[in-house]
Computed example of a mutant assay.
Amino acid sequence: MLRVLIVDDQDLFRGGFSLILDAQPDITVVGEAADGLAAVAAAAELQPDVVLMDIQMPVMDGVEATGRICATTSAKVLVLTMFDLDEYVYDALRAGASGFILKDIRRDELAHAVRVVAAGESLLAPTITRRLVQDLVRRPGHGVAPRLAGRLGALTEREIETLRLVAAGRSNAEIAAELVVSEHTVKTHISRILTKLDLRDRVQAVVFAYEAGLVVPGA
């Protein structure tokens, strides 16, 4: 049974998401929180598998709460946003979130999103991948970080190629087709990449690839 914590400062959204997820046979909502600070405390106490996290909230915003939860628990954070290019989504992903969903998501898609993130995958649409890169390039002092580039030496050639394709926004199926291997092999490569680079998930792998200079924006 997947355990979910819902965090949003609006009762309507918390209640609606709760009803939808509790109706699923393999999902249970273990708690709710109306602000980031309460979310951090609830995550520590309830140990959910997935946290649905709103971004703009009182007391503590969702970005800071995401960072604290990801640093102190094994919960996966799924960001809730009204707009797919919300300026705070990028920071939440960098803080450790495993992806994002829009608040007007269909009920079947909501349950699917929770299952995907709980399974260790990420929800990162191509538009957000592009936004990640654009924001990264625009940041003051942007450039290749030698310390990160050096860590690429821990990867095999095939793992480096896999990471490059992940950063390009390719799905496991697309990567498998391009490398002429099975999807299971791709998943194994990605798992090893995350372990070797000490990354939480695919989202962090995308950010790492660009910051390490493995992928050049626009190339």
Rank of each mutant, 00 (worst) to 15 (best):
R170H: 14
V181F: 08
V181C: 13
Y90S: 07
E211G: 09
V89G: 07
T185A: 14
P25W: 05
G213Q: 05
T72D: 14
E45Q: 14
E87H: 08
H112Y: 02
A125R: 14
E178V: 09
V40W: 02
D54R: 10
G15E: 08
M57W: 07
A167M: 10
L102R: 12
D26C: 04
E157G: 03
C70W: 00
G67L: 09
Q47G: 00
L197E: 11
L197D: 04
I55D: 02
Q134W: 00
P48H: 04
L21K: 04
V114D: 11
G99K: 10
I190L: 12
V4I: 05
A71G: 10
E211H: 12
V114A: 08
L197A: 07
E87L: 05
R106V: 06
G62T: 08
H112S: 12
F17C: 14
H189D: 12
L148W: 02
L194R: 13
I193N: 10
V77P: 07
R192K: 13
I55F: 00
E159A: 01
A34K: 15
A125I: 03
V216N: 05
D104Y: 00
G153T: 05
D22G: 14
I128L: 15
M57A: 12
E174Y: 01
A173I: 13
G169K: 10
A177D: 14
I193A: 04
A38F: 00
E109S: 07
E64T: 15
A71I: 03
H184R: 13
